[in-house]
Structures are given as structure tokens and as C-alpha cells.
Write a protein that binds this DNA or RNA. Structure first.
Lengths: 154, 154
DNA sequence: TTGAGATTGCTCGAATTCGAGATAACTTCC
DNA sequence: GGAAGTTATCTCGAATTCGAGCAATCTCAA
């Protein structure tokens, strides 16, 4: 509660640089996937399917950090582009499965390595050791923030 | 170029946790300012004016990480709410100055401390020392990413 | 078995953001 | 002085995202 007069608030400080860094990196990512006619969120869905195999919509949703309405919109676009298919889930009739089409898999096989390289380059300011340490700290931060309950309204 | 087969790619790993953490914290921030009828970006503009005094639109824009069109939209809303005024800049007739109205200042005086507390709580998983270290690393990352040139298209 | 509550994924309207100009004003350099 | 380039801001249409609400399905305890 007591604010240190001198020196800025550590938490607020981190919040600012965090937002800035995420924004800066995301510009590179976005520009790269845009070269292949994909939006950020579209690439996100393709990537998770590419690496994890078929998933329910809600699982993909968790990874692209969008609300359900937006996710449906993104999946629709991928389906229209014939990169992804919706298939019924035998175990749970609610949970439609998303599956990469051969075309979608081909696309990812072709563009993912370059994309990874773009991210690596965007992160080039940090050494391997620093990347590791940063990931540890930021993961801890994120898990904590996801856990903290909403504050009681005034 | 040669990737380590075992072990995940450090840069991609950090990119994922970074996006997640930013999203998690931003949910808290958003929920808090929403309680006062403000959107994220609106609060961002008010905050920078609150702390830095009158600024040109482009300077505020840099801090809220939006494009110019979106910034104009946000400023318009604040003007309509009578929290901010646009005033001519004597030194540069292009660069309109944004100024907090008394009402805007009152609002920020009232809600900023609570907002800062929300952010602090969202970041509560990290110790003071960790916050500091994380901020150092993430700042370095962000500055680097902002500097890296766009890659040459294939 | 059944029914209350949770989960999943969708639709739909509104809000937000982008991105490409257009315009005006400033700067630089000849 | 002025042409050419840069910067600041806004407008406008399109794309994206949100968020609330709904229907179908599943879970679990009584």
C-alpha cells in the first residue's frame, strides 16, 4: 500500500514494458503471417492444430486467447479457405473437432519454419540464457495473474 | 539456424508465455476500468495525460499502442465524455494538444490508485526482485523487437 | 432415473481496431 | 522562395473482437 516515493512502482513498470514488448513482437508475427494471407488468429489456430493434432474448438480457443464468438468467426474463415474442417466428436456431441485439411497441413509445413525464424529474430536482443530466464519469470507471472480472483467491487 | 531437436525453441516458448501473461494481466486491467465505464484505450489516454500533462495526439498514441485511426476514435469518445479537450498547439499547428478537463482529472484522481492496486495484485506472483528482473529482461526484449527491421520477403 | 448445473459452440448486434488515403503544416535543401 | 519530403491528424469502409444469450449436450448427486 505504501508507495515508494522515489523509484517507480515495479508492478506498473513491468506492466508497461510487457504490453510494449508483446506489441512489438506481435507486429513482426503479424506482418509475417500476413504475407501468406493469414490473420494472426487464423495462424494461431492452424499452428495449434499443426502441433497438437485435432482439437475441440474450446481447446484451440484457449490458445489463441479470443472469446468464443471471435473464435467461431476465425474458424469459419479457415473452413472457407479449406485449411480446416469441422468434424463431429464421437465422445462428446457438443465438442466439434477441428482438423487440418491436407491443404492446411501443407501450408503450415511450408510457412511455419520461416515464421519461427521471424520470431527468433524479433527476440534476438536476448541471449539464450536470458530467454530462458525471461520465460520462467513471465510464465510465473502469467499463471499468477490467471489465478488471482477478480477484486471485490468498491 | 541449426535448431536443437530436444528441448523447445526458447524464443517461441517465450513468445507464447509473453502473450499469455499479457492477456491475463490485461483482463484484470480491463475489468477494473470497465467498472468505471472506460475502455482500455480510453484509460490509457487518460493515464498518460494524468501523469505527463498535456500531450500531442501522436505522443499519446505511442503509449496506447494503437494506430492513428483508432486513436482518433478513442480521443473522440473522451471528448464526448468531457474528460479531455483538444486544444490548438501554438508551436505546431498540426499537433493538437490533448488536455485533461477538471472532470477528467478528478476521475483519474479517484480511480487511479485502485487501478494501480489491481495491477499490483495481478502481478503478485512475482517478488519485488523478480519484478525488477523481469522488467529488465522484457524491456530489453521489447526494445530489440522494435528495432529489428522487417525481414526481406521471400 | 432425473433434474439442476456446467460445458460447448454458435449467432448476432455493437464496439473497437485496422489500414489506406486525404489534408494541412512543418522542414530541409537547393 | 519554393519544391520535395516528412509529420500529425483525421475520415471512412472493412475486418476483427467482444459479450450476451441460446440451444444442445454432458455430469453428477440424490
Amino acid at each position: 500500500m505504501a508507495r515508494n516515493e522515489a523509484g517507480r512502482d515495479q508492478a506498473l513498470e513491468l506492466w508497461v514494458v510487457l504490453a510494449r514488448a508483446t506489441n512489438a513482437v506481435s507486429r513482426h508475427a503479424r506482418a509475417d503471417v500476413a504475407r501468406h494471407g493469414l490473420a494472426d488468429a487464423e495462424f494461431g489456430v492452424l499452428e495449434v492444430l499443426f502441433h497438437k493434432g485435432p482439437l475441440r474448438v474450446c481447446e484451440a480457443q484457449r490458445r489463441i486467447l479470443l472469446q468464443s464468438g471471435s473464435t467461431a468467426y476465425v474458424v469459419d474463415k479457415l473452413v472457407r479457405k479449406k485449411l480446416v474442417r469441422r468434424t463431429p466428436n464421437p465422445r462428446d456431441k457438443r465438442g466439434t473437432l477441428l482438423v487440418l485439411t491436407p491443404r492446411g497441413r501443407q501450408l503450415m509445413t511450408r510457412i511455419f519454419p520461416g515464421h519461427a525464424e521471424v520470431i527468433r529474430r524479433a527476440m534476438g536482443a536476448l541471449s539464450k540464457r536470458e530467454l530462458k530466464r525471461a520465460a520462467e519469470l513471465v510464465r510465473k507471472l502469467g499463471l499468477g495473474a490467471a489465478t488471482v480472483p477478480d477484486e471485490t467491487p468498491t
